[in-house]
Design a protein around this nucleic acid. Structure first.
Lengths: 199, 199
DNA sequence: TTGAATACAGAACGATTGTTCGGTATCAAG
DNA sequence: CTTGATACCGAACAATCGTTCTGTATTCAA
């Protein structure tokens, strides 16, 4: 009871409504719009709530003193265990962590880019047509890495392997041939992750 | 000379500066900030430029008459082809420049959570051990959807199917059995995407 | 060389912004 | 039964917003 209630509580429902609004419009609304969004009628109270979000780093300000999403605004719940509806919580944790997908997938923003996968040549590595590969750009790689290489002026995603003295690109699909680029090849980068949208 | 010059020209440099500002702050600035950003000193001229962007659908308005990114705001040239030489352009893949991966993967923040995949039961659907499933929480789903269900107080990712009158959960891996939950099951949500980190 | 666009600047103005401050209702602790 | 938080409402206000209108410099075709 001593230290716990230092910071005022933030209402997750308010945050969720704002996140949904932002997801739809890609903009943080004004205080009066926030008021209706949150079901209030006083801008002064909105101001108070915003200050709490600001302190919790869900919101932030531009150098021009405009409200903008803060560092934690895009955090998502990572649910470990299903929270049973009926059962009382067995006194443990909340059952989830918070992670930001961008931070999770991109660790070196300046060297990272995305490449869309075409075809099924890497199916056995769990890489499907249309997937987005997160690539860390670098001119060399290790045997066994999944690399994005430039062959015939096109991107190719393949395993990097060596045959005798030459590097080759191996698909993860028996129906596809090994690529033996004549006269060297260029490595664009190494796969660091994958993003897929279904639905 | 007749029909061609109906629409006034839009200056790509202005758009790029605004896109850069947005990428940094995740917000569209006010007209006076835009003026300095664009090197002008008259808001009236900003207003004119904005109207052109609006007509070209690079900008749009919220129902609350606030300026927001338009449908084409995140659009860039269609670069499937690798750009040779000094890697001029990171961060892109296809026609759309993703502002964030989070935005790409999450469409309804308040109903979205992440679940970590355990095991290889969905390998043939390109879902591997350790992957993060983006789940849109909802109590029901359609046959054929990949769902996250709660069985024995644990999350399971499977195809939803029906046998006669009962719902069953089908793995995407012949080595695993079909799950026929006795006495009904609870659906946590439907898979909407996937995030994987390698390396 | 004239005229009509185009690309700005600048002032004026009502509307809207976010802040501040004073007030009220609820509720749990002492 | 007080007291002090907490959760709001409502009014007032200066600052800033975006619009509108008038004016000017440049360009370029006729």
């Amino acid at each position: 009871m001593a230290l716990s209630t230092l910071k005022p509580a933030i209402d997750p429902a308010f945050l969720e409504k704002l996140q949904d609004y932002y997801a739809e419009h890609k903009v943080i609304p004004s205080y009066s719009v926030l008021a209706t969004l949150w079901g209030m009628s006083a801008k002064s109270w909105v101001s108070e709530i915003v200050k709490r979000f600001e302190e919790a780093r869900y919101l932030d300000w531009t150098p021009d003193k405009q409200l903008k999403p803060g560092p934690r605004f895009f955090e998502r719940r990572l649910t470990d265990q299903p929270v049973q509806a009926g059962l009382p919580n067995p006194a443990i944790s909340d059952g989830y962590d918070l992670i930001t997908l961008d931070d999770y997938l991109v660790r070196l923003p300046s060297r990272t880019s995305l490449v869309r996968v075409k075809g099924d040549s890497m199916i056995d590595a769990g890489i499907r047509d249309g997937d987005l590969i997160i690539v860390e750009q670098q001119p060399n790689a290790n045997i066994g890495d999944i690399v994005v290489a430039i062959v015939d002026n096109e991107f190719t995603v393949k395993y990097l392997d060596r045959e005798k003295t030459e590097f080759v690109l191996k698909p993860a699909n028996k129906a596809f041939p090994v690529i033996r680029p004549r006269g060297g090849m260029e490595i664009f980068g190494v796969m660091a992750g994958l993003a897929r949208r279904t639905r």
